[in-house]
Nucleic acid binder design. Sequence first.
DNA 1: GACTAGATAGTACAACTTGA
DNA 2: TCAAGTTGTACTATCTAGTC
Length: 210
Amino acid sequence: MSALTVLPDWIGTLEAFVELANDTLPHILPFDKTGRAKDEVNARLVRHYTTQGLLDEPLKSGREARYTRRHLLQLLVLRRLMHEGHGATPLQKILRGRDDDALEALLLGTATLDVQPGNPALEYLQNLRATPPPSALLGIVPRPTPQAPLFESPPDAKPERPERYVRFFVQPGLELHVGPDFQLPKTRTERDRLADALLAALDTLRRTKP
DNA sequence: GACTAGATAGTACAACTTGA
DNA sequence: TCAAGTTGTACTATCTAGTC
């Protein structure tokens, strides 16, 4: 059961909303060595997302805005997908067009996006995941969810690190193991570096092979 | 490699709105 | 009327792609 399930009817002020979101974000974003503060959100940013159409309009209680569990789901999914390299604009329709269950499924990793991620590496992996395993892919051990289980630990506890490696078939004779700490390259430069590193590693293997 | 232009995310600030 | 909250707009920072 997730922490969000524990809050079926949560509703609060913008301040409480921001605080709850910042408490929860470290549990849903991929691990970062620095735990950067820039992953946090603030009141102005929440309003910015609202004006951009990325979040539903808040409810009104007098002159105060009231945010609900749905807003929280939208924000968490938004931040997570942005963290993964998705642009805010294409996410606008995605987030607003989904009900709470669909949003939570996205957050928990039991559903995937059908949008172009704008990141060739992500696109490749998404296509790979969507491809039915032909006989050549039988070695793959699919990860149950794209991310670690979410919200299972209390807010003040350090999230548990999934230690599993995911194995991807690349081509006959070549399998890629992806660890939980691996960050997909976001830029062309990073992709080039990754490709260079992979080729260098393969070259080393070729030279050391008898 | 250096430079430039464009796109995007996030922030600052002033004006506006609203309830007490 | 005033204070608190919201909104609109402009700005900065950063990144990327294209060109030379």
